Amino acid sequence: MLEGAGVPFAVQVADVDEAAVKATHDPADAAGLAVELARVKALAVSRHDAEAWVLGADQTLSFQGGLVSKAGSLDEARARLTAMRGTVHQLHSGAALARNGQVVWSGVDTATLRVRNFSDAFLETYLKTEGEGLLACVGSYRLEGMGSQLFEAVEGDYFTVLGLPLWPVLAELRRAGVLRS
Rank of each mutant, 00 (worst) to 15 (best):
Met1Gln: 14
Met1Trp: 10
Glu3Trp: 15
Gly4Arg: 15
Gly4Thr: 13
Pro8Ile: 01
Ala10Asn: 04
Val13Leu: 15
Asp15His: 09
Asp17Asn: 10
Glu18Trp: 09
Glu18Arg: 08
Ala20Thr: 05
Lys22Met: 00
Thr24Trp: 12
His25Gly: 04
His25Leu: 03
Asp26Glu: 06
Ala28Pro: 02
Asp29Gly: 02
Ala30Glu: 00
Ala31Ser: 01
Gly32Pro: 01
Gly32Asp: 03
Val35Arg: 07
Leu37Ser: 04
Leu37Trp: 08
Leu37Thr: 05
Arg39Lys: 15
Val40Pro: 11
Val40Ala: 13
Val40Met: 11
Leu43Met: 15
Ala44Tyr: 07
Ala44Phe: 05
Ser46Lys: 08
His48Arg: 14
His48Ser: 13
Asp49Leu: 04
Ala50Gly: 13
Ala50Glu: 13
Glu51Ser: 13
Glu51Leu: 13
Ala52Val: 03
Ala52Leu: 05
Leu55Trp: 08
Gly56Ala: 11
Asp58Tyr: 04
Asp58Lys: 07
Gln59His: 12
Ser62Glu: 11
Phe63Glu: 00
Phe63Trp: 09
Gly66Asn: 05
Ser69His: 03
Ser69Gly: 05
Ser69Val: 03
Ser69Lys: 06
Lys70Phe: 06
Gly72Thr: 14
Gly72Asn: 15
Ser73Arg: 09
Ser73Trp: 10
Arg78Phe: 07
Leu81Val: 04
Leu81Cys: 01
Arg85Leu: 05
Gly86Val: 09
Thr87Lys: 09
Thr87Gly: 13
Val88His: 04
Gln90Leu: 13
Ser93Asp: 04
Gly94Asn: 04
Ala95Thr: 00
Ala98Lys: 12
Gln102Asn: 14
Ser106Lys: 08
Gly107Trp: 02
Gly107Phe: 05
Val108Phe: 04
Leu113Arg: 01
Arg114Ala: 14
Asn117Cys: 06
Asn117Thr: 07
Phe118His: 01
Phe118Met: 03
Ser119Met: 03
Phe122Thr: 02
Leu123Arg: 00
Thr125Asn: 15
Thr125Lys: 15
Thr125Trp: 14
Leu127Phe: 03
Thr129Leu: 06
Glu130Tyr: 09
Gly131Val: 06
Gly131Leu: 10
Glu132Tyr: 05
Gly133Gln: 11
Cys137Tyr: 13
Cys137Thr: 12
Tyr141Ile: 02
Gln149Thr: 14
Ala153Lys: 03
Ala153Cys: 01
Glu155Thr: 03
Gly156Met: 11
Asp157His: 08
Asp157Asn: 10
Phe159Asn: 00
Phe159Ile: 00
Thr160Asp: 10
Val161Gly: 06
Leu162Met: 14
Gly163Arg: 02
Leu166Glu: 04
Trp167Ala: 11
Pro168Phe: 02
Leu170Glu: 00
Leu170Lys: 01
Ala171Ile: 08
Leu173Ala: 14
Arg174Ala: 15
Ala176Tyr: 13
Gly177Thr: 12
Val178Cys: 09
Arg180Met: 14
